[in-house]
């Protein structure tokens, strides 16, 4: 790593935030390395750099979309923001408070303000607990309200996510995937959180159900003034739902900016490749596509390429890309910064 402090945007001011507002979540130089151990003594022989120096802000009321392929580290970022994993380095501050410096007790009680919606609606609900108790559990944990108030609140939550009240007695396995995801959303909303990490909330659902859940998430955001980190690999859905979009590749941010900037004027070759890879429901457009947008596979995150991480697949890569890590710079002209980490962003745009 050639840059001191390595990683995207260590310094304030260049983290892709619209000017003015105080951020709800501030992430700086976040690193999450998972040790690779081998042999009888479980000696550490290396590390998978799932997240390797990532900085960004999330502003109150916005939806930040986070896209990337498997192995990009996008889910790990979401978990580190909620401190479901303990980052190797870097800081995450929520409402101005550094999560790492909180006592376990303080962290547990802070969790009522930040919640998560999971990808797999089958695995994320305890099969042995009826739905009413699942939705009620956060209220029990944080001792919110009296017993009857909690019951009323559960009823309210179920109707908010479009489930019948008699769902309370039934068990998760009695519901379809879409309904279970509604249960997961009701559970996440129970404590009136401000911030929600939605980790691929629709990718396990049937196509005809996805739009229902996306609409529900949008409605709830408007009604409750929520802030989302929306993690997904479906670019069209991310574009539909997000205000700003961050693109991750091999543990680093490649690009971050306003939705329209990132999708309509992508600066990073990876964003361009990703965008060009998306199939469209349009036979004419698809038939005219002549060659693959990007060759090769995502490298092993335990041995990421030196320099720019995309250089092994990038059609524009030069020597500098293979040696020096690109700086995280703002090339935006509008009010919202358009951040990119590419040596040649200006030249190839």
């Amino acid at each position: 790593m050639s840059r001191p402090g390595g990683g995207n945007g260590g310094e304030g001011g260049v983290n892709g935030s619209p000017t003015g507002a105080t951020p709800l979540v501030v992430v700086r130089n976040l690193r999450m390395h998972f040790p690779v151990r081998r042999g009888f003594l479980r000696r550490q022989v290396g590390a998978v750099r799932a997240v390797d120096g990532v900085s960004f802000d999330i502003h109150p009321g916005e939806t930040l979309g986070l896209v990337g392929e498997s192995g990009s580290g996008k889910s790990t970022v979401g978990r580190a923001l909620l401190r479901l994993v303990t980052p190797t380095a870097g800081s995450v501050a929520f409402q101005g408070e550094e999560l790492a410096s909180m006592t376990p007790e303080a962290l547990r009680s802070a969790r009522r303000h930040m919640q998560m919606i999971f990808q797999d609606p089958y695995a994320s609900l305890n099969p042995r607990i009826p739905v009413g108790r699942i939705v009620r559990e956060p209220l029990d944990i944080h001792r919110l309200g009296s017993a009857s108030e909690r019951t009323t609140r559960v009823r309210e939550l179920l109707s908010m996510v479009g489930l019948p009240n008699d769902a309370r007695r039934r068990y998760p396995h009695e519901f379809s995937g879409g309904q279970r995801q509604r249960v997961g959303i009701a559970r996440a909303l129970a404590t009136n959180p401000r911030f929600i990490v939605a980790d691929e909330p629709i990718s396990a659902l049937d196509v005809s159900i996805q739009a229902q859940i996306v609409n529900l998430l949008a409605d709830l955001k408007d009604a409750l003034g929520l802030t989302y980190l929306f993690i997904a690999h479906d670019l069209a859905m991310v574009r539909h739902l997000s205000d700003r979009v961050a693109v991750m590749y091999l543990g680093r941010l490649a690009e971050l900016g306003h939705r329209d900037d990132v999708f309509d004027h992508p600066l990073h070759p990876y964003t361009k490749a990703l965008r060009a890879s998306i199939p469209r429901p349009d036979p004419a457009a698809e038939a005219s596509r002549t060659h693959t947008s990007v060759e090769g596979d995502v490298p092993d995150p335990a041995h990421p390429p030196v320099g720019c991480r995309f250089n092994t697949r990038c059609p524009f890569a030069t020597d500098v890309c293979r040696h020096d890590e690109p700086a995280w710079r703002n090339l935006g002209t509008g009010r919202v910064p358009h951040m990119v980490a590419c040596h040649h962003a200006e030249a190839i745009e």
Binding site: L84, M116, A123, N126, I129, E137, G184
Partner: peptide, 20 residues
Amino acid sequence: AVFVEAARALGASSGRIIGR
């Protein structure tokens, strides 16, 4: 299991996670 991670995300204590 994901539902255990979900319980942790809700702020459940270790005792609750094990027992429930």
